[in-house]
Design a protein around this nucleic acid. Sequence first.
DNA 1: AAGTGGTCTAGACCACCCC
DNA 2: GGGTGGTCTAGACCACTTA
Lengths: 263, 263
Amino acid sequence: MTSADVTRSAIRVDSVEPLWSQAVAAVRMRVADGSLRPGMRLPPERELCLSLAISRVTLRKALLRLVDEGVLKPSHGRGWYVAGDEAKEWPNSLESFSETARRMGLVASSVVLRSEVAMATLDEAERLAIAPGTPVFHLVRVRKLDGVPIAVDRSLVPSHLAPRLDRADFTTASLYETLTRAGLDLVDAGSTIEATEADDDVAAQLGVAERRPILVMHQIVRDRAERPVLSSTIQYAGDRYRLRTFFARAGASSGPMSGFGVD
Amino acid sequence: MTSADVTRSAIRVDSVEPLWSQAVAAVRMRVADGSLRPGMRLPPERELCLSLAISRVTLRKALLRLVDEGVLKPSHGRGWYVAGDEAKEWPNSLESFSETARRMGLVASSVVLRSEVAMATLDEAERLAIAPGTPVFHLVRVRKLDGVPIAVDRSLVPSHLAPRLDRADFTTASLYETLTRAGLDLVDAGSTIEATEADDDVAAQLGVAERRPILVMHQIVRDRAERPVLSSTIQYAGDRYRLRTFFARAGASSGPMSGFGVD
DNA sequence: AAGTGGTCTAGACCACCCC
DNA sequence: GGGTGGTCTAGACCACTTA
């Protein structure tokens, strides 16, 4: 048995989770705990099939998913390799605030300015596709890195989707994790990103001069039924933060699409 | 035969393209030419397998890919549906400038300020992972929508990867398409997005006041060998443009990842 | 030539939706 | 209960890498 060995032990047949999903978790675990280090080659697919006791098709579905997440890299004729730190820290979507903090070795913290349920205004109701006046949980946080204010984050969640959110302490808790644990499955998100100037409110909260550049990201996250679950507006101090994204085409094969936002 | 019928005629066995990729193209064609309209249900998988003469596994690989591109939406127990215009215009990556123009019904054009080969500076060489002094193609364009200047786009391509780029007319041509046609396969891209102020150069080119907010997107596009092929820096007038992204988790199944940049 | 990933197949069974 | 997608399998053959 090599140290890169991945055994069946992690796979439970009676679980509701699909086998490929369990395989994803098993491999991800091995990468997280360090038994699979960046640059290492995984055992050949046919061996992994045996040790995980799943078919090759199922295994490959799992491995491809991990490519999508930036954990693995396939190399035709050579093998599957664990992605280096560079790529691993660049997920196949927008990097979240806490991920950024981890990557840079800084401590992320939040100051909660508002955490309460209030009636949805016309504007808020439209963004969340609910009726005006519906109870909505409002969360306003100043996000900090090593104590320095970086961004103001205003989030909205319809109360009937996740009751009692106002009892949670979002000084440390992650909103995304809290919603997931409440049984919501966030499957897709549309977002817009623009540059504006700081108004006096945001300038004061971030400790920058008025009219300084602000990076604004607005996001609507939906569940499997395409129901808006979360509306989030983050205003970053322009000279203190940079959004990062990474896009990879898994089974590319000369994709006919225009690409990654490049013409 | 229903109007949604997709026949084998489009699939050529002798082609180098994988069958699933050809199936993707066949379905995409039907959507593009209007024989499959938004909201319509596709024939059942088992029927499509017969008409395309491919196995169900292969067909599903193609359909899943189209979900990734925002063309289709699966519905367990009901069928596959053509995505509405809303979703279709939001690819699973950053929306490109011309896509934005199309969505908004505006005419995209470019003014080429510079199109020549020059030696790479230290900074440029580092970004492209080449030696300083290596010949690099420089392309500087002012991107316009309906004649209004929206952004300044500075792109760099190492000359040895695509010779004679300075002969092309990028007033109309797409750089991405030109590179693809030159045989380069752009498979992944890392990018950063930030907000800054307009310096006098950019302010003049965009016709805005100095120190006004600017949205800057920097991007490094790589080929299959992870070799940087294109470095692109786009500076958008803050009050004239908004970047749009859409992220979907195809086979989600309670993803354990933090999400879409949301905490 | 041997090893390894990439594509493809035919068929089975389960889970969900709707009549 | 019948139709439809979702998961899974065992095995075949091809393409790329390495020696």
